[in-house]
Design a binder for these strands. Structure first.
Lengths: 190, 190
DNA sequence: ACTTTGATGTGAGGTATGTCACATTATTTT
DNA sequence: AAAATAATGTGACATACCTCACATCAAAGT
């Protein structure tokens, strides 16, 4: 199962069996049931999570009690409260499971240790973060330049797997619209 | 002037005079006048730009010919079309100068060379990108959870310097509202 | 200094999306 | 299988924001 991580790393840098064993020894395993929290607002964020299987969401609750989805997580993706993780402070977001999920957990200390010890790994994480940057920027652009329907269509096209796992009201929250508006896209065929 | 770059690097990793000289030798200098382009849609993106002085904007033009500001750039910030830069493809955005600007230019090849040769520099760029990630994510959250007025107030609070250099219509574009809506915030005092 | 160009303000009316309420249909849980 | 819970659809109405039009004011180029 943890081979998924190795595959992801090896898309960017080549590593030996021994090196992978060593890297993996810095992770811990966690299995989490549906509806359970991985990170809760106010808690210290110790880990970044690599998703072996399952599905999660990270979201922030605003002043009016409304949730806004920051990110979904599925197999092969990483998820945490990055703001809190990188600065080792308390979470401002919640992360919970949409379905039963298996994670590899990497503490900040272990991440920095690996990066310091193995230049290759620092390279891997840099490249990974670069990609994340581009994705985030595209989402901003989508929010700035497209209406709700266009954003919906684009997301459906880009991540069809997501729509099998995630209820539409969460998709709506991710896109920044109400579930009602999103629902009406099915009838209105413009 | 290029000491600004050194200061930024040394906030994250310590380097010697010789090391800095070496790093700097991988940059080229560029001076650009107001209204001139640094990157144009369709061109190959060779450089990432470190801003020594001045002010720039990067923006994307949508299907209806409307511009959307992706990022501003001021002293001490980096700017480029990251999607095109990281994948060494052609630009989908434009970057031009809001006022006369002085840049340090780093080609992708030189960036990768420095990162490969100096672990410290790879570390620096990783940390830098991490921060950028957090900023981008906060902007997404702001677009999802705040109305135009709230976004405006937050930006004004966070980057007051920006409002001295940049016309309000560009601020509007960055926030994802029309200049008219933004203008009305001055009269309406809610 | 004058002229052009760009930035800002403001009114009137339009539209996409939000809100609330309730019905219907799936999905879990017992 | 029944009961409870969550997800979805849809109507009526509200509203934040957009569009277009024109006036004013500031800045830049000659």
């Amino acid at each position: 199962m943890s081979q998924i991580l190795r595959q992801q790393i090896e898309k960017i840098v080549q590593i030996t069996d021994t090196e992978f064993e060593y890297i993996l020894s810095h992770f811990t395993n966690k299995k989490i049931k549906k509806h359970q929290f991985v990170i809760q607002e106010g808690q210290l964020v110790e880990n970044d999570f690599f998703i072996l299987s399952g599905c999660l969401k990270s979201y922030s609750t605003d002043a009016n009690g409304k949730d806004h989805i920051i990110q979904f997580g599925m197999q092969d993706w990483w998820i945490t409260d990055y703001q809190a993780y990188y600065s080792q402070t308390i979470a401002t977001v919640n992360i919970d499971c949409i379905e039963e999920t298996e994670l590899l957990c990497l503490t900040f200390q272990n991440r920095e240790k690996l990066c310091a010890e193995m230049h290759k790994i620092e390279h891997f994480f840099r490249k990974k973060t670069n990609k994340r940057n581009v994705a985030l920027q595209n989402r901003i652009l989508s929010l700035l330049s497209s209406n709700a329907k266009e954003r919906y269509d684009k997301l459906l096209e880009q991540y069809p797997q997501l729509f099998q796992k995630v209820p539409k009201q969460l998709i709506a929250s991710y896109l920044g619209v109400t579930r009602e508006t999103l629902s009406r896209f099915n009838s209105t065929k413009k």
